Each structure stands twice: as structure tokens, then as C-alpha cells.
Simulated scan of single mutants.
Amino acid sequence: MEEGPNNFERLLERQAEAIHPDVQERTEQGLFKTFESLRLVGQLLDVFVPKMVDVLVVAAGGDSSRKPVSAGLDAHARKGPAASPDNHGPSLPKEGLDEIR
């Protein structure tokens, strides 16, 4: 036996129907502007935070000749698709593939 919508669901539907299209459009535009602003802030943090850490390390007396944090890991320490070809995990033997099958 399937029940119909309860009172709260009916109220929600009535409220959604009562929203004027211009109010809904303004709300959507406001949300999109907020999302764009948050994306911009995220991109700025992604770019500037590693550089800021490097500056703070040097200002605190750290070694400026070492590779900066913003340079990331070298290719030999990376895992996954960004890794160097010799660091993708175990490789198959060049000879003797019949033994594996």
C-alpha cells in the first residue's frame, strides 16, 4: 500500500508553485554569482598558498636553495598518471610472457 504525499510534502509543493518566476531567476543568478566567487577564491588559494609557504620558509631562515614547496614532487616520487614511466608499478618481463599465461 503506497501512501500519498504527507502534509509537509504538500506544503512544499504549494510553496514551490507560489514562487514568482522573477524571484526564482534572481535567486538562481545570485547563487551562480556566489559559486563563481567561491571558484575564484579556490583558484587563488591554489596558486598563492604554496608560494606564500615558500616565502614564509625563507623568511624564517629556511634554505632557499632547496626546491620550493610549490614546485611539487619530482617525477620519481609521484604516483599515478603523473609518475615517470619507470614508477608506474611492477612491469611485465620483456621475455618469457608465455610463462605468465
Rank of each mutant, 00 (worst) to 15 (best):
K79A: 12
R66N: 04
A71M: 05
L56T: 01
D63A: 03
R39P: 03
A16S: 10
G62W: 03
K79T: 15
D54A: 05
Q24Y: 11
F35Q: 11
L40E: 14
L40G: 04
E36V: 05
H20N: 07
T34L: 15
V49S: 04
F48N: 10
E25S: 12
A59Q: 07
L45Y: 05
E17D: 12
V57F: 06
Q24G: 07
L45K: 11
V58Y: 04
K33I: 10
A75R: 08
Q43C: 03
V23R: 12
V58P: 00
H76N: 10
V47I: 12
S70F: 00
L40M: 09
V23D: 15
Q24C: 07
T27K: 15
D54W: 05
R66A: 11
Q15S: 05
L31W: 12
H20I: 06
G72E: 03
D74W: 02
D54P: 03
L40R: 15
Q15I: 15
P50G: 02
V23F: 07
A18M: 13
L31R: 15
A59K: 06
A77H: 10
P68Q: 03
A18D: 13
A59T: 04
R39E: 06
E28C: 08
R14D: 01
L45P: 02
D54Q: 04
D22M: 12
L56H: 02
K79N: 09
P21Y: 14
V53H: 05
G42N: 09
L38I: 04
Q15P: 00
A59M: 09
T27D: 11
A18G: 10
R78I: 02
Q15H: 08
T34W: 09
S64C: 00
V53Q: 05
A77L: 07
T34Y: 13
P21A: 10
V58N: 02
Q29A: 14
A18E: 15
R66I: 10
A60Y: 00
L73K: 11
E17Q: 15
D54H: 06
L38A: 10
G72H: 01
A59S: 08
S64K: 08
A18K: 13
R39N: 10
V69G: 02
E28S: 13
P68T: 07
M52G: 00
L44S: 09
L38T: 05
V53L: 09
T27F: 14
S70E: 09
G61L: 03
K79V: 13
T27Y: 13
K33R: 15
V55A: 08
D74S: 07
D46P: 00
K51L: 13
P50L: 01
G72I: 01
D63Y: 01
V55N: 04
K79S: 14
S70H: 09
L38K: 10
S37L: 11
Q43Y: 08
V47R: 09
R39A: 13
E17T: 13
G61E: 01
Q15R: 09
D74V: 03
A71L: 01
K51E: 08
H20K: 15
V69E: 05
